[in-house]
Nucleic acid binder design. Sequence first.
DNA 1: GTTCCGCATGAATCGATAG
DNA 2: ACTATCGATTCATGCGGAA
Lengths: 274, 274
Amino acid sequence: MEILTDLYLGDCREQLKLLADNSVDLIITSPPYADQRKNTYGGIHPDKYVEWFLPISEQLLRVLKPTGTFVLNIKEKVVDGERSTYVMELIIEMRKQGWLWTEEFIWHKKNCYPGKWPNRFRDAWERLLQFNKNRKFNMYQEEVMVPMGDWAKSRLKNLSTTDKVRDNSKVGSGFGKNISNWLERDKAYPTNVLHLATECSNKNHSAAFPEELPEWFIKLFTRENDTVLDPFMGSGTTLIVANRMRRHSIGIDITPEYYEMVKQKLNPVELYLL
Amino acid sequence: MEILTDLYLGDCREQLKLLADNSVDLIITSPPYADQRKNTYGGIHPDKYVEWFLPISEQLLRVLKPTGTFVLNIKEKVVDGERSTYVMELIIEMRKQGWLWTEEFIWHKKNCYPGKWPNRFRDAWERLLQFNKNRKFNMYQEEVMVPMGDWAKSRLKNLSTTDKVRDNSKVGSGFGKNISNWLERDKAYPTNVLHLATECSNKNHSAAFPEELPEWFIKLFTRENDTVLDPFMGSGTTLIVANRMRRHSIGIDITPEYYEMVKQKLNPVELYLL
DNA sequence: GTTCCGCATGAATCGATAG
DNA sequence: ACTATCGATTCATGCGGAA
């Protein structure tokens, strides 16, 4: 079966209206944060953020299948020494729209932005808010279980002092502990804390999204031939991963540069799949 | 100087009124979550949680010094398949009271509660909400610095020609000073994600607080002879740690059993310090 | 081929300076 | 006063070139 990719150029508030009701299995997106990406999205002021996003989430609620899931990557910025509350307000308002706030995953950014300030430490995490239409939704937990592959076995043999020390250090992502778990089991279910680094080596654009992030949620919430939507696709990480994993995908972006870039990146993949 | 410990038996909504204005440097507490610890606080319904907590936070605002900090450990529970929103609402309402919501730390529980559900994974994190009275508050960041990664060590060893040449080329730009700082530095500042295991040894107390948690915040936000308050002291972990670290402490709890337990545990420590 | 080392680069935040 | 811009601070990661 052919894997399809639909790209839309334009403001997603308009473009989303072109999509059919109940047609998407997974929405995963990282909208522009408040006051960020001014050059492309105009920089939404924190006070106006909820008002700006609610019409979008209303459309997303319409196009999502009853069994589908919406994963929203977002983090509030600091304004005048305080964390803004627009994410809190957004969750409350989206529930009034009919969304169920099922869960909040934490993305622990192992390589967070450096810096030093008198009143706060570096910000090393972002929210991954899971919303659903119904209490019953598709979730394929076995797909994201941590496998005990050959990689792990060779890794375990070389479990030196370094790993155990690293576990206790600041970086300590629980890696050592996970490894010791693997010794006793074939597979383990993950938790709602994800440990991933950002990809900052990509020079063309600001792809804050490591591929493992959409990959993990696509595995967890969809099967082959399902449909994935990213209304703020940016450089198209979500779509490229979805395509590779044989899921149909729909991408929307307001900037022609991103639209063309993703178009060029995805065509070869489609040919390869045919 | 003698380190003092004050214990109050009773509902903290009443007992807090006995404390003087602007007398506490750090409040750190883990209140009963909604519908938890029913035997002690009667199990506050999620819908009533904000209403129940606001009078308490009002008193806490009064007793906290202007340079002090309030750290609130809390996590919303799942109700009917959804995360409750009472924590979100509480943050918004506390800001209306006059609190500044400075930061949200994540406590990543490396060994979280086991279990399996069809629609969610194990919950491996809790919120540590930092509130302040003023934008300027006491923060002793050097006290909680952690060992650096391997990266720094290899870098520092080979600090030779290149860096020194560049150092000389940039006259008076402060760059040379930075380099010399790096030479002496083997530690880095932490982030706002804490990796700690829960303590499962203490089965008497329902809220399992690892000692490292209050210890970290006491180091960060207080100095010796400062005063720490826990209005829901439970088994008294916060007070015991504070006492050991030579901070005065005030504890309140509604259950006579906890009150007596902490009293017995702290007396020997006081004698030891004298 | 490996390993090692140098370097650029982040969805950051604060404080000072300028309009 | 209030906003816009700029410099300073800082560290994990992956890449490319060198040993």
